[in-house]
Design a protein around this nucleic acid. Sequence first.
DNA 1: CATATTTGACCCTC
DNA 2: GAGGGTCAAATATG
Length: 368
Amino acid sequence: MELSMEWEHKTLISELSQGKELAKQLSNHLNPSSSLEARQFLVDKILSSYEKALSLLNWGALVDQQPKPTIGTVEPLHSFANSSPRSEVSDQDCKEECNKDVYKKRKIQPRWTEQVKVCSGTGLEGPLDDGYSWRKYGQKDILGANFPRGYYRCTHRHSQGCLATKQVQRSDEDHSIFEVTYRGRHTCSQASPSPLASPSPKNDCSKQSKYHRKQQQLQLQREEKPKPTEEISVNFGSDLVQVKSEDLGSKDDIFPPFSFPCTSLGNENEENNIFTESMMENNFLGSFSPTFISPATSESNYFSMSPCHMNSFGIGYPNVQTPESELTTEIISAPTSVTNSPIGDFDISIDNVDFDTTFPFDNPDFFA
DNA sequence: CATATTTGACCCTC
DNA sequence: GAGGGTCAAATATG
């Protein structure tokens, strides 16, 4: 925790420094010859940077206010992993007790929801390919829902004790929208789904197997009962992200307000991955730099994102308003490339804006 | 053979 | 008791 706080402090300073540096750059762009796009981008970056800083402060407050877990240890994630989920409990006598732990822990997992619109023809992007490697462990028909809800957990749950899970529910209203509810943080090493960070095959947590993809496609087809075919032309139109926080119903829930998409940088320290993971889990993956239209002054935050901002390291994650809040991210967004990789846009943006020179992730001490 | 999905059953919370 | 979440055996796939 102390490490986390220290990192948090450094991050905060880095964000503020970055904002300052960006403001400087913006001032250099205030001459008439400078393009409006460049200025707008810098403004976005500055806003994003400060939003992150504010969010970090909020998150820190949340952590401080976080009630101690009533069960388990101070490190619920790891203790849970070590105490094994139900399936790994061989001792029947222990089983019941451990089950209780499972369900208690379930409650204290951070949880947030995304609504992702699948706009590509494959139907595999969006919630089904968010960069992590998920394994389906269940499916259930939900009352009032036309489509069954799929339950996924991190493939590395057993190998690395990663407790991240997600639920995928296809929207009734718009069948191309998936509501993805994430729970828990990825604690698997790497935890770096962003192609931006490491396209390397060693990135075992960032790729889904071909088998996985095919199965998902089959599943999609199965779920398409009311709408048998969803052949959507590749339309990478306007990207809009709608973020709203909503009541969590559990004060135990922690929501990391933002994270950095530049991945874990090889650092497997869980504390250092708190933000990166949470962001990745929210599909931002370093792909988006939201332009805040409205600060988090209301229950719902809306911000648009432009593909030209795909390089942003700042997610500008919406503020967590209350410890009870749950973040719902509605991504009405298409993948910005056929490969669903933001790298192309990343490069474009880098070309456009010379902003990275001060970016803290270049600093090896950033995650130290 | 290893790994992933399917699916009925079980357990917990409300 | 209903509904939701998870387990685990059976099954499928590469």
